[in-house]
Amino acid sequence: MKQLLGVIDAATYHEDLQDLLLHRPVAALPFAGRYRLIDFVLSSMVNSGISSVAIFPKFGYRSLMDHLGSGKNWDLNRKRDGLFLFPASPMEAERNSGIGCFSHYADNLDFFYRSSQEYTIISNSFTVINTDFRELLQKHLACGCDMTEVYKNGQPLNIYLLKTSLLIDLIESRYETGYDCIKDVFDDMKSPYTFCTYEYEGYARRVDTIKNYYKTSMELLDAQVWTALFKRSQPIFTKVKDEPPSRYYEDSSVKRSLVANGCQLRGVIENSIIARGVVVGRGAVIRNSIIMQKCQIGENCAIDSVILDKDVKVESGTMIEGSPGMPKVYRKSSVIEQVDSRLKSLMTL
């Protein structure tokens, strides 16, 4: 849509997710086996006809750059408009700021001046959502407000809509007003602007804690939730990787799980999410867990309510257990060898 400019804030850091953010920003956090969190807001923008999207990361953004590339997978590798990445300056990277940081935008103010779109959508990068932002624009225009914020069940999603010219004014006047970010404007009871709220009725979840990440991931195993999020008319795009189909050996059993391509599965997998290239050894039992890309699970392992980051190796015979309310998290490239007698019963199934 020529009226809309997309801006995605990828600078937010969530302390509770730190074990999964050592080598990546939250925008690049793997999700649902083959996606990254940023894919959902970015795809929503593309499916809404937005052809110019700017992404503002702050730190650890190499994995994000690798994932996004030229924007080809989102049809944003264009001669005019397209995908833009504006990393924070070293001084800006030291600042603690909210979503829609005006000083970060000020370092790239020329981008906003050159943009021809009349309205701008500012969004965080960690909300799992699949929406058409044109409906938000129509509501905004009908209400005649200066700014509109998106809500879900009465809670803010940190997605905002305003005129591009107003955004430029807010950036340029930040020292006079004291507003550091777009959220500050909404929080100011004495603000001279008029605000509207847009209650989103579809599926939407903020992923800002380990608990939310795990809960949201497990919700995808519900067919109704999956259908509500992954709509045929509004596909979620991601980086394409050419890998062979997953191989299910005769002694494997997979129930109520999401399995990406390139896996070799010999064990029992139930109620879990298995990412690309995972190897599961003979006799292993995996339940209620999230196993990220290229993990290796040895023979006769028992894993329950666990999150394994990429390239984790679980030695044969290892037994580990978390809980749905507090899943155990293992950092990228860890090697795990830990026997837990409470899980020995799983090995007899």
Rank of each mutant, 00 (worst) to 15 (best):
Q296G: 00
E219Q: 15
N73A: 12
L170Q: 04
L83T: 03
S97V: 15
D187S: 08
L166S: 07
S51F: 04
N96P: 05
V280A: 01
A27M: 04
A28N: 14
A11R: 09
S341N: 05
L22M: 12
M347T: 11
S48M: 02
R232H: 12
G49T: 05
F111Y: 15
Q138H: 06
K2E: 11
K239W: 02
D146Y: 07
G325W: 04
L5W: 15
V150R: 02
D66T: 12
F112Y: 11
N96R: 02
P324M: 00
S44N: 02
S97R: 12
K139S: 04
R78C: 05
R80G: 00
R282H: 10
E149S: 12
F84Y: 15
K328A: 03
A10K: 02
C301F: 03
T120R: 05
V185S: 02
T164L: 13
I171V: 13
T227M: 05
K215V: 04
F84R: 06
P25K: 11
F56Y: 13
L37C: 04
A204Y: 09
R24G: 00
A28R: 10
Y203T: 05
A260V: 14
R80I: 15
R62Q: 09
I291W: 15
V259P: 00
N108K: 10
P245N: 14
I320V: 11
V7Y: 07
R134Q: 14
E15W: 08
C181R: 01
S70N: 09
L109D: 12
L170W: 14
A88H: 11
L42N: 06
A142Q: 15
F230Y: 14
N108M: 04
A106Y: 15
R276Y: 08
F40C: 04
D75Q: 15
N47V: 13
M65L: 07
G60W: 08
C143K: 15
S97C: 10
F126C: 03
K255Q: 08
A32I: 14
T318S: 11
P327H: 13
S173Q: 13
D107N: 14
G100P: 15
D208P: 00
A275Q: 12
L64T: 01
T164N: 12
C295W: 05
E219S: 04
L68H: 08
V207K: 15
